[in-house]
Amino acid sequence: MFMIFGIPGPLLFGQLLLGLINGAFYAMLSLGLAVIFGMLNIINFAHGALFMMGAFVSWMLLEYLGIGYFPALILSPLIVGAFGFLLEKTVVSRLYKLDHIYGLLLTFGLALVVEGLFRNAYGSSGMPYRIPEAFQGATNLGFMFMPNYRGWVVVAAVVVCFATWAIIEKTSLGATLRAATENAPLVQAFGVNVPRLISVTYACGVALAAFAGVLAAPIYSVNPNMGSNFINTVFAVVVIGGMGSILGSIVTGFGLGIVEGLTKVFYPQASATVVFVVMVIVLLARPRGLFGKAA
């Protein structure tokens, strides 16, 4: 067995992979938060609850309708995204003229409702979700054994993150979106249906969270608290990265996952708090965040 810095190689790479997976979820969730914040100027506190809902919908599709993992990977984000669309139309859209904190408070209440309902229906203990046939087993990479499903999660997350980035930065739809973020009345004057654009943006951000939820279902057990466990860390990630940049959210998300994984190897006691410690350091050194624009 070879050693790196006095640590057995497989242990180091194993934790790095775990870190990378957590990082993949941080990246997808903080990306959704950034997209929603850019357009709606609210922090979507319900993001964690909707992530959990995505996992639950895929579990329900399998349990009640026998619909497997791959269709669920598309269906679940669609269903949760549609739910998000309705939410935006009926509730969230009433808050745009108010102080931004009301958006935070409303979505916090929403998160409580969603989590409470799922806890009532399914209890707090988790439900297992089988790893799909295609990704069972592990691959020998030479320096470590990688469970196939985990590799898939990282690949899928990277693809989805960069697809989102490409849509926002490289397509004309993304250009409209960015323009509306800068100056909504002006874009509206050009004949763009801005309220519709806002609803769709919210729905897409929510669908991204649900997609992450489906990916997470076979790794973590599907339980009503899985979102709130993640979301607090994701807020720290968002503070560290700053919400100004799409690419920034992705890089910060993956980066912090890796930092967390490495901490588990070298100083396990701090692994739960390391992201927050990084946040403190960033606040001291560069308060606007690594990729944030000056206020």
């Binding site: 009433r94 808050l95 009301y102 408070l105 409303l106 209440g109 998160a111 409580l112 409702v113 409470g116």
Partner: peptide, 21 residues
């Protein structure tokens, strides 16, 4: 009633923000 406390709190939150600021 268990988790209904959470649901009720969430609903009150939303009602307060929407109608009783």
């Amino acid at each position: 009633f268990g988790a209904w406390v959470t649901v009720t709190q969430g609903v009150i939150f939303m009602l307060c923000v929407l109608f009783f600021r």
